[in-house]
């Protein structure tokens, strides 16, 4: 009864949120040792290490800044060209840094808990989650203090991607094992090779286009099967990163242009 309600509707969300408040202290407690370790690592460092790190970070910052100069110019040019083509603009997204709580969820799924909830931030369900290297997943449940997110390796998660080299579109499905994605519905003669970079295509209207997803690791073509078996490795460090980025893609400009995204978003809720 309750399970059906939860599966089909949103009515029991308040029960879930209420119980999560009871649960939160326990999650916090379990997270404490990991938190403490990172705190000690941050506190007890030598002056020399800090100096060294500072130097490398400064150099890196210089390089990134130099690249950014070029990037702003290219972005402006891109917006201009898209205006000429009368297609929707891609404008900058808002971001927020969140931290993962080190607690384990259901062992047969790939999910994480983050330390941002509905109390201070206006998160929304299906919000994309990134780390420094690529797409991690999206938010499924929002509670007052925490939220849970589903990772792209979860067997229930599908992600529309395209190959960066030639724009070949496909769907990346999680396999349930760490560091492996499966690419579906690619014919045996598709132009895909080991080492190809995959980026989000933005077609599902959940993830903004152009973020790195992973790299193709194996391509197995068997003439007896209708499709090629292609596996990829996610770019994001799904099992290691502690800090994640929450993204608010800007749909405002897309709504004006009546893209498929704005239509599905109106009907979805």
């Amino acid at each position: 009864m309750l399970m059906t309600l939860d599966y089909r509707t949103d009515t029991v969300r308040s029960i879930r949120a209420g119980l999560s408040v009871i649960i939160y202290p326990m999650q916090y407690l379990v997270d404490l040792p990991g938190n403490f370790i990172s705190w000690t690592r941050d506190t007890f460092v030598t002056h020399y290490t800090l100096q060294e790190e500072n130097t490398t970070l400064r150099t890196q910052n210089q390089i990134l800044k130099a690249q950014l100069q070029k990037f702003t110019f290219i972005e402006a040019e891109n917006v201009h060209l898209r205006e000429l083509l009368q297609s929707s603009k891609r404008v900058g997204e808002r971001m927020l840094v969140a931290e993962l709580l080190s607690v384990d969820l259901d062992p047969f799924r790939r999910q994480v808990v983050i330390n941002k909830g509905s109390l201070n931030n206006n998160l929304y369900v299906n919000q994309p989650l990134l780390d420094a290297n690529g797409v991690m997943g999206k938010i499924v449940h929002i509670y007052p203090f925490t939220s849970t997110a589903i990772l792209i390796t979860d067997p229930n998660h599908t992600l529309p991607v395209q190959v960066a080299r030639n724009g070949l579109r496909t769907i990346a499905v999680g396999t349930g094992s760490d560091n492996q994605l499966k690419l579906l519905y690619l014919p045996n003669n598709a132009d895909i090779r080991v080492g190809d970079k995959l980026i989000t295509s933005g077609l599902g209207c959940v993830f903004p286009a152009g973020y790195p997803v992973g790299r193709v690791t194996t391509v197995n073509t068997n003439p007896r099967l209708p499709f090629a078996q292609v596996l990829a490795k996610p770019a994001a460090k799904l099992d290691r990163s502690r800090e994640v980025l929450l993204v608010w893609p800007s749909h405002a400009s897309q709504a004006k242009m009546q893209t498929p995204c704005s239509r599905t978003q109106k009907t979805a809720p």
Binding site: M3, D6, R16
Partner: peptide
Amino acid sequence: GLLLDVLYDTLLGQHAL
């Protein structure tokens, strides 16, 4: 079981049942 459901983020009521 209900607490476990929220904890594991599974379908509400599955562990409870």
